[in-house]
Amino acid sequence: MRVLAVADSDSYLKWAACLLDDLPPGCVTDLVVVRTPIAPSPEQIAAAVGGRATPPVLSARALRRMAERERPDVILVACTGPVVDVLVAEVLHGLRPRPVFATGLPGISVPATEKAWEFRSGCDLFVVHSEREVAEFSAIAARLGGGGAVGLARLPFLRPQRAGARDARGAGRDRVVFATQAKVPKEREQRERVLLSLAELAARRPDLDVVVKMRALEDEQQTHRERHHYQRLWRELGEPGRLSFAAGSMAEQLEQAAGFVTVSSTAALEAIAQDVPLLVLSDFGVNAEMINVVFEGSGVLGTLDELTQGDFRAASPAWCAANYFHPRERDDWAGLLTGLVAGPRTPARSLLDGPAHAAARRRARLRVEVPPTVLRAGYRAKRRVRRYLKALS
């Protein structure tokens, strides 16, 4: 089975690279990045793919030519929703023989959303990572129609710690890692409170190195736009304490971690897998908007005050079994994929076909066909025109 994986951002690239490694033996795989305004930098690409060969960054036309040349049995479309839709419906439409289109989400997807399903409804297999997610997306599929099978895969980067990385006495654990999330919290003041609490912890515990682990540096792109970047905020606060900032591999940070904290990040699951005690901050709410509702009942929700005390804790075993840490033998995505390749099958039906969605697809196609520098210049010009017209009115 030949599989071509296409990613458009850092988090999806990491997910795709790991998922390819979990394919059955004998599969031939290729990994590429499609050029968009959020395409990862060379440093982000290197961190995301680990030891794999560096994937090329291709335009939409070059991707189409590659697919025509390689004739993959499967195309794993590991991209943000609008890009998944336009690649499957237009850029890669009409390939002969038609490949199986697989897609998925790279992290926590609770609660399941109709929008996530609609954008990916043109794909034959939708991969999620807990039995709860399978149930929620299957219910959406039954209600809305479209799409294909919903498959279960344990999040591929939830690996047990490497043997000898840390002994039972916690040797080498001299770090507290704060994993940022681009989307939440939204407000500048909330992010400043997090930084100041981390600085207070660092002052109370001089034996610990407190690290703000970022998905991207200030000048790098990521899956979601980050309005108030933590590194810039810290500088504007006058750096009132002892914090360090790092990008790169989360796994390497966790190997040295005595504690982990986040507002909402899939990296919390990586910390659990590595037996790192943690906190998921609840000060700004526990709800779908904060992307942390899944942690209800986990035992790891806590406050900034508890963070300053270094009060990290282990997740509930019962919660882990129900959320993302199911036994490997429950995974069925690879079997479903193999069955789809063997066929026969009816191609998935996208819910976004038709004139009502044509304009949105045209905008998404611009993201994959126009060079990002040209596209950004166009966006800036459009904003200037809007401001000018508003001033005249």
Rank of each mutant, 00 (worst) to 15 (best):
S109G: 14
S59F: 04
S393L: 13
V83A: 04
F101Q: 00
R143K: 15
T29S: 14
L195C: 10
R313S: 01
G354P: 12
M214V: 12
A102E: 11
A348L: 09
F312R: 02
S244F: 09
E296P: 04
G297F: 10
H224D: 13
A89P: 00
A203F: 01
V374Q: 13
D331A: 15
V150G: 03
Y388S: 14
L254Q: 07
A16F: 09
A202L: 10
V49T: 05
A139S: 13
I140N: 00
L307K: 13
R367K: 13
F325Q: 01
V184W: 07
E270G: 02
P37Y: 03
R69T: 15
G147Y: 10
P372Y: 03
D207N: 04
A149V: 04
G285C: 10
S249Q: 00
F119S: 06
L336I: 09
R365H: 11
F137R: 06
L352Q: 14
A168F: 10
P277G: 08
D283E: 12
V83K: 00
T308Y: 09
R169A: 15
V300F: 04
L279I: 15
S316A: 12
R162A: 14
A78G: 06
H93N: 13
L392P: 05
L105K: 08
R328N: 09
R166C: 11
L237P: 10
A78M: 02
R349N: 13
K213V: 03
R169W: 11
G302D: 02
G248L: 05
V86L: 04
G147D: 08
M1G: 06
G172N: 03
S41T: 08
A288K: 11
T266D: 01
G285M: 12
D311I: 03
L63E: 02
A182K: 02
W319V: 05
I272R: 08
A359K: 09
E236F: 11
A203E: 13
A179D: 02
A78T: 01
K382F: 12
L201T: 06
L375R: 07
P317Y: 02
V194N: 05
R143H: 12
R361L: 14
R96P: 00
A53Y: 04
L366W: 11
P97I: 08
L243R: 04
A360Y: 00
L195P: 05
D311S: 14
H228P: 08
E118Y: 15
R35S: 09
Y379F: 15
W15L: 11
A53N: 08
P82N: 00
V294L: 12
A359D: 11
L301I: 02
H326N: 10
S130M: 05
G297A: 12
F126G: 03
F178D: 02
V49P: 00
A165Q: 07
S265N: 06
L76I: 05
D73S: 08
R166I: 08
F260K: 01
D332H: 09
R313K: 10
V34L: 01
T223E: 12
V368H: 05
A356F: 10
D10T: 14
A273D: 05
E296F: 07
V370F: 03
L208M: 14
N292S: 08
E200N: 15
G297E: 11
D353N: 14
